[in-house]
Design a protein around this nucleic acid. Structure first.
Length: 805
RNA sequence: GCGGAUGUGGUGGAAUGGCAGACACCGGGGACUUAAAAUCCCCUGACUUCACCGUCGUGCGGGUUCGAGUCCCGCCAUCCGCACCA
């Protein structure tokens, strides 16, 4: 035992980070002999602000798992890269008159150094950057494959448009009517837009969830977002016209209760028959009114139904032959179903409200509620419904009605999804150019594969055009080209891909990042894929996680990858909040900078606190004092060096405690219970500190199980013990169940379920003999105090409960 | 409205139906020190008590059980996501 200098995290950490870099310590092995482990975190968007303490939570967790896997003998792929296209960089570039490529490079360098400061065991040799032409060449390649297979199409519809960012947004990017980038209100505009047909994969995206290990809330959120419903399309003829209007309903069995129909204000059939409609002026006024409403007004304030009747146009109920009036109302959306509904006010609350306001008949077809007060949506006996009368079961009545609908040829069963096709083009500069060409003769033609990558032209004006076009549209040399098919003059598509394009397949590129022949060698893909464990944020569940599953499923379908789902297991971390319990943001001024924390307590203590502060999947406020507590813990670990003796056994109890800690830490890391794993190590260290001496083996085992959490200090102490091989090459310790066994245990004695005392008993006492012998124990005798014993319950190692009268 | 989660000391949080509050933070007391920092030791859910003992205690109300923070039924509150989705 000798004098040990104080723990100096700064020196130790930079020393080991340098050694790891020089020895390429964490690069995946090229050989495919070992079992593999592919651990993934969402690659960061390198913003100008750098990291705050929330970002490393995911990285630290997966780093711990990756380090443990290496020690368990796996060939580990734990890569890092940069999701670097996107609007914040472009906006920064515009404001400061620098090229986004330059900003991106600076930001990446800053991010990389921040990550290295924290000692993550990334394989930096496999870094990818989505803005690198060598990367986005393959983003464009996959896009063209989709184009080839009919998954890319152009359509003029109402789209989400952010007037502030001047871009069209997907549904996923405009959730809640707010722009995902600037959080301003999104408006609905009719526009020509490129779509990816993600709805063709809606069922696959649902089905695939059954074969992967996702937490319930993530799977459920995807299910809700996809929003599958089954029902029927039914056609109602217009009275006196050779034209039908189709509706979608989930309750075709209520067809006899239809008393009116409602069309979305923008429904195209209205314009088609404008000359027959007598109140077109009023209709146009109503449309204008609806278009002006914000999302908030439409959903929150519009409890009161608005609308008006179509004069001069009505429909016929195809099952009853009765005339049905048609109304216009904005509670019916053009973007879902067919943009028109059959209204059954007795059994749909929205229809009920509308009917009540406009004095329309309400006809009951399902008994069980009071339809004068509100719509009845429960089950009941069907009435007023001809051949359906007497049905009591929803499933049966729907099946019967579907049969009838098909027999009469007035409709068909059908499925609807809330999820919409993915609006894929952005009218901005800093993204992958869409490799399509508009030829006046041939139409839309793909850029030939051999011409990829289609590079971004170098310009110095990135301002989005006022005409709703991308800045690329102003560059003649880029726009004008020859049609690859006919050789005639043609023009390039000038929009770029959305932020989510590059991230939809990056996990595949990591498998073989430097390949310039294919996006990744098939042998590498077959070895590494699928990702074994993917951790990330909840905010990506209905965007990146859905999009990338879609791209991967497509690649699987065309035989490019060998597994149908990209991620075998997905987990998500909770947010780290500011010390005030609010979400960290620059505007709130509660951002904690990791550099300052590391400067004060070191990266190891920082990592330790990130994992110790609370349950991994819960949101937790940052505590500066809590972080310091972890520094104190590592100080104690460091001082343990003074206690390492030459003997090979000092305390059997401590030896058992070491085995217990190995077991607890091994199991807790797998369950992402990092907080209790660290608590177990703290307890062990406290116990060790209380000993006069500990053995070298005990010290070494502690260092091994602590090393994934606090790698630098453990490498240093490992080296101080005289080792020349690094600790991350050591095998993960195993615990000995036998060593956990104690000869004697203390159990609680309960009387009628309340703890009254404690006794020491032999650990191997069987239930049978315990229940017979223990009531004789003097302490138990004292507690039962001569009362009549009704029942004795013995839980080995836990307690004895005596029921007395 | 629909879906998901959460509710435990002053704080963050532990707890396969089996000793509630592990492990920390904060706070209090003591040791060491000229002093401070660091470190070490002790106390720290509430009420009662000098102390032991005892009583109460996991959002609220019921229930199941020898035994409930945990399971069941009914509420309340907070957070997140979606939302006039036919």
């Amino acid at each position: 035992m000798s004098e040990i200098p104080a723990y100096q995290p700064k020196a130790i950490e930079s020393k080991w980070q340098k050694i790891w870099a020089e020895t390429h310590a964490f690069e995946a092995e090229a050989s495919h002999e070992k079992p593999k482990f592919y651990g993934l975190i969402e690659f960061p968007y390198p913003s100008g602000h750098g990291l705050h303490v929330g970002h490393p939570r995911s990285n630290t967790a997966m780093d711990i798992i990756a380090r443990k896997r290496r020690m368990q003998g796996y060939n580990v792929l734990f890569p890092i890269g940069w999701d670097a296209f996107g609007l914040p960089t472009e906006n920064y570039a515009i404001k400061n008159h620098v090229h986004p490529a330059k900003v991106t490079k600076e930001n990446i360098d800053h991010f990389r150094s921040q990550l290295q400061m924290l000692g993550f065991s990334f394989d930096y040799s496999r870094e990818v950057d989505t803005t690198d032409p060598g990367y986005f060449r393959w983003t464009q390649w996959i896009f063209l494959k989709m184009f080839e297979h009919g998954l890319v199409f152009r359509d003029k519809t109402l789209v989400n448009y952010c007037p502030s960012c001047k871009v069209v947004l997907s549904n996923e990017d405009s959730q809640g009517g707010k722009c995902d980038i600037c959080h301003n209100d999104v408006v609905q505009l009719p526009k020509d837009v490129w779509y990816l047909r993600i709805t063709a994969y809606a069922d696959r995206l649902l089905e695939g969830l059954k074969d992967v290990d996702y937490p319930e809330n993530i799977a459920q959120q995807q299910v809700n977002w996809i929003g599958k419903s089954t029902g029927a399309f039914v056609r109602f003829p217009f009275e006196g016209l050779d034209e039908e209007i189709e509706i979608y309903t989930t309750r075709p069995d209520t067809l006899f209760g239809v008393t009116f129909m409602v069309m979305a204000p923008e429904h195209p059939l209205i314009d088609k028959y404008a000359d027959r409609i007598r109140n077109m002026d009023a209709i146009r006024a109503y449309r204008d009114e609806c278009a002006k409403k914000t999302e908030f007004e439409r959903t929150q304030l519009a409890k009161e139904k608005t609308g008006l009747k179509l004069e001069g146009l009505s429909a016929v109920n195809p099952i009853t032959g009765k005339t049905v009036p048609i109304y216009l109302s904005d509670y019916v959306m053009m973007g879902y179903g067919t943009g028109a509904i059959m209204a059954v006010p007795a059994h749909d609350q929205r229809d009920w409200e509308f009917a009540t306001k406009f004095g329309i008949d309400i006809v009951e077809v399902i008994q069980g509620g009071d339809i004068t007060k509100e719509a009845y949506t429960g089950d009941g006996v069907m009435v007023n419904s001809d051949f359906l009368n007497g049905y009591t079961n929803k499933k049966d009545s729907i099946a019967r009605m579907l049969e009838e609908i098909e027999k009469r040829g007035i409709g068909r069963p059908g499925v609807q999804y809330k999820m919409k096709d993915w609006a894929f083009n952005r009218q901005r500069y800093w993204g992958e150019p869409i490799p399509l060409i508009h030829c006046p003769k041939c139409g839309v033609v793909a850029v030939p594969y051999e011409e990829l990558p289609l590079r971004l032209p170098d310009v110095d004006d990135f301002e989005p055009g006022t005409d709703g076009k991308s800045p690329l549209a102003r560059i003649e040399s880029f726009v004008n080209c020859k049609c690859p098919k006919c050789g005639g003059d043609a023009k390039r598509e000038t929009d770029t891909m959305p932020q989510w394009a590059g991230s939809s397949w990056y996990f595949l590129r990591y498998c073989d990042p430097h390949n310039d022949q294919v996006y990744a060698d098939r042998g590498e893909l077959d070895y590494w894929m699928p990702v074994d464990w993917y951790n990330g944020g909840m905010e990506h569940v209905t965007r990146h996680l859905l999009y990338s599953r879609f791209w991967h499923q497509f690649l699987y379908d065309i035989g490019e990858v060998g597994c149908p789902e990209p991620y075998a297991k997905r987990t998500a971390q909770g947010l780290i909040l500011g010390t005030d319990g609010e979400k960290m943001s620059k505007s709130r001024g509660n951002v904690v900078n990791p550099e300052e924390v590391v400067d004060e307590i070191g990266a190891d203590a920082f990592r330790c606190y990130e994992m110790f502060m609370g349950a991994f999947d819960q949101a937790i406020p940052w505590s500066t004092n809590g972080a310091k507590g972890c520094k104190k813990f590592l100080d104690r670990v460091w001082r343990l060096q003074e206690k390492v003796g030459e003997g090979d056994s000092y305390s059997p109890a401590l030896n058992a405690a070491v085995h217990e800690a190995v077991k607890k830490v091994s199991e807790d890391i797998e369950r992402m219970k990092f907080n209790t794993a660290i608590a177990a190590m703290m307890s062990l260290v406290n116990e060790m500190m209380a000993q006069p001496a500990i053995t070298r083996a005990e010290m070494e085992t502690l260092l091994k199980i602590l090393s994934p959490v606090a790698p630098h200090i453990c490498e240093e102490m490992w080296q101080n013990l005289g080792h020349t091989e690094p600790i991350h090459h050591q095998p993960w310790p195993v615990w000995d169940e036998a060593a956990l066994q104690k000869s004697e245990v203390e159990i609680a004695v309960q009387i009628n379920g309340k703890v009254r005392g404690r006794i020491h008993i032999p650990a191997d006492l069987t239930r049978e003999s315990a229940e017979k012998e223990l009531p004789e124990n003097p302490e138990v005798q004292r507690l039962t105090n001569g009362k009549q014993i009704m029942k004795v319950i013995f839980v080995p190692g836990r307690l004895l409960n005596i029921v007395v009268k």
